[in-house]
Amino acid sequence: MDSLIPFTTSGSLVDCVDRKMLVVLRDGRKLQGVLRSYDQFANLVLEDTVERIYHQDVFAELHRGLFLIRGENVVLLGEIDLDQEDEVPLRQVEWSVLEAYHKKEVADRKHRDEAKAQVLFERKGFCKEGGEGDGY
């Protein structure tokens, strides 16, 4: 079994090293950076990391630096196609312009999820974990 290299975490991530990657975290944050290292738990080292926020068809980014991300917080790791990256139909704006919109969107979603979880808990016997803001 151990000799089947494609069927291991290391087998599937080996060709992503030193490439520009997108990392989505469980709290919804989106990071972009160069993947320098990883292990079997999908702990990641990301260099020259920027955080991106999106709102409709605009985005903004903020430089964050060098990160070691604990694997359990990782949702997905995407390889950014550098050819397609330039053709993305999105407009970049200043972080300070977009931040308020983004925060409101996050807060609204949290509020809606909490209200929904409360209703389903009371009437349908579902657990209230929705209040934590995600289904993980």
Partner: peptide
Amino acid sequence: AVKNCFIR
């Protein structure tokens, strides 16, 4: 712009 991905 993502073409291939690793999902935990």
